[in-house]
Design a protein around this nucleic acid. Structure first.
Lengths: 238, 238
DNA sequence: TGAGCTCGTGAACAATATGACCGCAACCGT
DNA sequence: ACGGTTGCGGTCATATTGTTCACGAGCTCA
């Protein structure tokens, strides 16, 4: 085991809502190997803190950066930190979750991307994998190999461990979700079975599951003879 | 499969040694889904090309950035591209391989890190996983979920060389790979056991390993009663 | 040669899609 | 209004496959 003297990771929380900031701080406090270095409520302040800490010789290792800040966007702050050449890693925390933001965040050198609201367990997973990533690189000699680099990258990868209810498979749920998202219009179970190659029972089971978890909207479709058919539509903004 | 309509990824090669640049260009040409957008020999030129392409409406999607450039360091160029807010992803290519450079590269938003010299196979793996990452995000609606983000991260930083787990032998893996490559069509574990003389459990274990390394695609096969059978198909372009 | 390790196999158990069946809830004809 | 028709909703047993486990054959090393 290469345990022992791993340096503590100093964390700065950037979050304008005091309540959320406090919650995140509490989360950080519960995690071994991390230390709260402070809190900032604006982009300006965040940048100042990071820069000041660096020149004071006690650099911030990690910033938990909310994307929506009163004075600027988190991505802008990240870019500014990058331009200054500060050696700080950034985990993006945001309630906004459109694809462009994710792309932008990765381009800005964000190591993880957390969507609010999240549980402690999700939070812990992300930060732990970041800690592993650091340990991996710290454990290397000054010269690294391709496979060492690959491993370091890989430990930044999220395990994505969402438990599914018995009887449902993620590999089936995913196509269903994608189809619903792609299709703007409401979809019935029978309409789902053909393009996905599923039986009606299975299609209905997954749609029902999505409806129960609140991800899709369920409504009866009247007008035709026979018992009304349920149609399911993806809730945009979810 | 939902192949086809993925947009081509436009690649700019930044490399001062003409020989290396040519080699990389040839590599890009061999990969499906990528298109050479040009070559730059200096950091200045690289930045100009990226900026010009963006304002011309034909943006560079990906830069293969050598770190050692005559006029500046690749990381500086990367940071400059970031500061300009250009939506370009960067793969670092370098012969220098100290830990700090790796850290800096990740902080600068580099999506992959390639150490020279590399084989075509290594190169292809990195670019393919980048392509998968793009496809993953493109396939999403404008709003994504945490698990979608996690998956995208995962495919981007997928470990490329998972050490062969205990219980698997090279001498068994090779025939499996050959059979998959020869067979154009997807193959299930049961279909593999007969021609190779393996038990179902063993066949499945090897297929599963290949799926984990990202060399083969795994998809459930619906339509028949019973638990769905997984079918595995060799990823072309690897 | 024998202890230990490696890798494949068969069997038992868990998971998950399917087909069939029955009942329900809205249209439709009188 | 009212019973008949229609077609989907919901449940269950069934069919297969995925997964795990312990065991055994073959190889390595001392």
């Amino acid at each position: 085991m290469t345990e022992a003297a791993l340096p503590v990771i100093r964390v700065l929380i950037v979050e304008d809502e005091p309540l959320a900031a406090e919650a995140h701080a509490a989360y950080v406090g519960r995690l071994a190997g991390f230390e709260l270095a402070g809190t900032a409520g604006t982009g300006q302040e965040a940048f100042r803190r990071v820069a000041a800490a660096a020149s004071a010789g006690t650099p911030i290792d990690l910033v938990l950066m909310d994307m929506n800040l009163p004075d600027s966007h988190g991505l802008d702050v990240s870019r500014r930190i990058r331009s200054a050449g500060l050696a700080t890693d950034i985990i993006a925390i945001t309630a906004v979750r459109d694809v462009d933001n994710v792309r932008g965040a990765i381009a800005a050198g964000v190591v993880q991307y957390l969507i609010k609201p999240f549980t402690y367990s999700t939070f812990a997973t992300k930060l732990s994998s970041y800690r592993d990533f650091r340990a991996e690189l710290n454990g290397q000699a000054s010269n690294v190999t391709q496979s060492a680099v690959d491993h370091a990258f890989a430990s930044l990868r999220a395990p994505t461990d969402i438990p599914m209810p018995k009887g449902l498979a993620e590999s089936t749920l995913n196509p269903v979700v994608r189809y619903l998202q792609a299709q703007g219009a409401p979809v019935s179970a029978s309409e789902l079975m053909e393009p996905l190659g599923l039986s009606r029972v299975t299609a209905r089971r997954y749609l029902e599951y999505l409806a129960d978890t609140g991800l899709v909207l369920r409504a009866p479709r009247y007008g035709a003879p026979g018992r009304p058919e349920n149609e399911y539509s993806w809730k945009s903004g979810r």
